[in-house]
Computed example of a mutant assay.
Amino acid sequence: MVTEEKLAGWTGPSSPTEKDKQERTERMIREAIDAHEGFDGYRNDFSVYAKGSYANNTNVKSDSDVDIVIECTDVCYWQEYDPAKGGHPAGSPYTGPWTPEKLRAEIAAALEKKFPGAVTAGSTAFEVEASSARVNADVVPSFQYKLYFSDGTYRQGTKVFKKDGTSIVNYPKLQLERGKEKNVRTNGFYKKTVRILKRLENELVAKGLTEEVPSYLLECLIYNCPEEYFSRDTWRGTMRGCLAKIFNSTMGREPDNDRWVEANGAKFLFHPAQKWTRAQVHKFASDAWDYMEFE
């Protein structure tokens, strides 16, 4: 049985040594972008910031990679939530130099100069290999994105183009904002519970008792759990409630009126384009429940 003492030990963030490596990695990537001559004349049009588990302080040692966004704000891609109603007038087409191809090329050159032999170009992001002084990093070339509503307000995110020309929209800053808000409402127990679930998944995978589940998905699962679960007297009580909720909510077809969302609160968690499925999550929740020896 996973004891209360062990769960309490799983609530903490990365160790000071690991945190130093993460911060050093972020700093070195910023330095690479700042020093690259390809961005001369446009430095005010780029925003470099961390996203994901590292930025949200929900990462654990086994998932300590750093995700860094290089966002070009010289370009703004946008669309309307409901085009039939309208919400934003069309502007002039962008005529500047920053195409998805050019952005990828300049970021690649900047990283390869700073980290020779340690950069791999993936379909979406560039991976910078870890060393004794830094952790693995994913660097994501992005553009500013706005989703306009019929009242003229908008939701701001990023648009990321893959090498094959397809694109996805992310909301990294909303994830950070929503996570902070939920953590405050739960007196700090939300992020501690996320760390417990991530460490529990790591242990199950290491013992061959479940299939690997993406770190971001684990955070989203806890994000969708009722906040009253985080005020229970014990960590076993909190995990019992969360695992039961995850198991029951992923059983069968998802109801249209109760769809789960990502930790940014802006995108549905389950849909055909996702790289995970409800069945995968349901099986993981069952495996975790059994390992915790809940009845």
Rank of each mutant, 00 (worst) to 15 (best):
A50Q: 13
S53D: 11
D287V: 00
G38H: 08
D233N: 09
E80W: 06
A125N: 12
N264I: 01
S249N: 12
F126G: 05
E201L: 12
F161C: 09
D67C: 07
W235D: 03
S15N: 13
Y216T: 00
S249I: 00
L218H: 01
P16C: 02
V160F: 11
A35W: 06
G12R: 15
F230E: 07
Q274R: 12
T11W: 05
T186D: 03
R27Q: 13
L243R: 06
S249Y: 10
E293S: 12
E26C: 00
D67K: 09
Q144D: 13
D65W: 08
Q156A: 14
N264H: 07
Q22Y: 08
K51E: 15
K19M: 10
N57V: 14
G252R: 07
I107F: 06
V60F: 05
A273C: 05
K21A: 06
P93M: 01
P214R: 01
V184R: 13
F115Y: 01
D287P: 07
A273Y: 11
A105C: 03
Y49E: 04
A55L: 00
A90Q: 14
K19S: 04
F247W: 11
S64A: 15
C220A: 10
N57Q: 15
H88I: 01
E71H: 03
Y49K: 12
T73N: 15
T166I: 02
S231A: 15
E203H: 15
A110R: 03
A109S: 14
W260V: 03
G188M: 04
G12W: 12
D256E: 04
Y223Q: 03
S47Y: 04
R278A: 10
A244E: 11
P93T: 08
V205K: 14
A84H: 08
K267Y: 03
G96Q: 10
R155A: 10
V213R: 05
G237V: 04
Q156K: 08
F284R: 13
G208K: 12
S47T: 13
P100N: 01
T166H: 12
T234I: 01
I68A: 12
K21W: 08
E112R: 10
L217S: 04
L217G: 02
E31Y: 00
F143D: 10
Y154M: 04
D164G: 06
F270S: 02
A8H: 10
H88K: 14
L217K: 05
G208C: 11
V139E: 02
E26T: 07
Q280R: 13
R24I: 00
A90V: 01
C225G: 08
E80T: 07
V2D: 06
K191C: 05
G96E: 08
P89L: 03
G86M: 05
E293W: 05
